Simulated scan of single mutants.
Amino acid sequence: MGSTRRWVLGSLGGAVGLAAAGTAVGLLRQERAISRVAGADVPFGSLRSDPLTVIADDGVPLHVEVDEAEPSQPLEGRRRRGPGRWSRASEAPPTVVFVHGYCLNLDCWHFQRAAYRGLVRAVYYDQRSHGRSGRSDREHATIDQLGRDLRQVLDETVPDGPVVLVGHSMGGMSVISFAQQFPDLIGTKVIGVGLIATTAGGLDPSRILMPLLPSRLTGRLTHRAVAALSRGHALVDAARRVGRVVATVATNGFAFGGDVPPSYVTFVDDMLAETPFEVVADFFPSFRGFDAFDSLEVLDHVPVSIICGTADRLTSVGHSRKLHARVPASRLLELEGAGHMVPLERHDQVNAELDQLITAATTRASAR
């Protein structure tokens, strides 16, 4: 599996350009014998921690899970003011917050969760109307609201200390929306950002329909057709179940760029199938209206890693290249032949880049 890397180094210079094996997190993963296939022997959906509920500003309950770091990790060791309290954000080890994509849930971070469990403090949550979180009304099924939800999750789960945000697909849009609405937190609270297979606008929403509908219902669907289908969402859901074999084939073609184990395809297809079509329709209009490219300059205050597959059929590689152009100090990792579900398909390379991001963010924050 080849890859194309485009690195733009900021004030950290060559230190940021070290191979992942040379970073603090990467070294620790090697020392603990966490290999490039961490999580391969763990059933999908089985990685869990005690759940907690964060209430969004409109009252929707969000399902959240926090994996705490084990003692004696290299990113800890600064003095605390009390349980969970640090004297300054730059003195605390970062919490990494993972934000999943459209019609998925927190389980989609399986290989990242397996690789980082116990090494860094990590927060995973189901976005509104997804997974085990509560249902949103249609009025609040927007990218702007998802940015506010992320702010609420941070307030509740990381009241002190720095944060690295990592978002995939719609989760990346949530991160960008957060940065757009709360720019004062970028460089203070948020010390690093990872954007995976995502965009800040200009997305053609019709691209995302194929793996979510039986083939006979895709055709020339428009926003009006999606709205009409949403009124009969129960019938659409029934058709999706009946046409599961066709849907699985579509999931494979649209989610992955190359051959992957069948369990990967089934795993993604299960998450898609568990998302009611009414939820698909609720969020659908928000994608076309989302445009935050002009707000990306704020991200140049922190290390940013942009990761994409060159065979992504949902958020094409051009979106990531445009993000990189708008955030000049960012790093762009293009994974040749990989598709939209790159955190699964190329999890080893994605994790290596996240090693770099966490280390760069921590180093820069400590140098302030």
Rank of each mutant, 00 (worst) to 15 (best):
A92I: 07
S46K: 03
T359L: 04
A227E: 13
G82M: 09
R128C: 05
R117A: 02
D41V: 01
F267T: 11
G45L: 03
T362P: 00
A255R: 06
V96A: 07
H324I: 02
P261G: 13
T95N: 08
D50S: 10
T95K: 05
L47I: 05
L299K: 04
G77E: 05
L62D: 10
A361I: 02
E274I: 12
A281V: 03
A352K: 00
V302A: 09
G318T: 14
A247T: 12
T266M: 05
F182A: 13
A352H: 00
Q73T: 10
Q181D: 10
Y124N: 07
Q112K: 04
V164F: 00
G17Q: 03
S136N: 15
S177M: 05
F293G: 01
L344W: 02
D204I: 11
F111L: 10
P285L: 01
R241I: 15
I307E: 00
R128T: 12
I196L: 11
C103F: 09
P214T: 13
I143P: 00
G17N: 10
Q152S: 13
V302F: 02
E91G: 01
D355W: 06
Y264N: 11
Q112P: 03
L47F: 00
P43L: 07
R79D: 05
P262L: 06
A40D: 14
P262R: 08
C103D: 05
G134T: 15
P43C: 04
D58I: 14
V317N: 13
V260P: 06
H347F: 06
V245L: 08
A20D: 02
A24V: 05
I208E: 12
G77I: 00
A24C: 06
T362L: 10
L213K: 04
A20C: 00
V249N: 07
L332H: 08
L52I: 06
P211K: 11
D41G: 13
H347N: 13
S46Q: 06
T23F: 04
L335S: 07
P205Y: 01
G147M: 02
P343V: 05
Y124T: 01
V245M: 04
N252R: 15
T142K: 01
R85T: 07
L323P: 08
I208K: 05
G194T: 03
E156S: 10
G232E: 08
S230V: 08
G84R: 08
H301S: 15
M173G: 01
V298F: 02
I55C: 07
S330W: 02
R48Q: 06
S230L: 09
A250H: 12
V66D: 05
A281F: 04
A227N: 09
S177A: 15
G187Y: 12
G253V: 11
P93D: 10
R321S: 14
R121T: 06
S316P: 15
S174I: 00
P261K: 12
D259N: 14
W7T: 06
G171L: 01
F277G: 11
S174H: 02
R240H: 09
T315A: 12
L357N: 07
D126M: 11
F287I: 00
M1F: 06
D204M: 13
A115Q: 07
G167L: 01
V96C: 02
A15Y: 12
Q30P: 00
G202M: 04
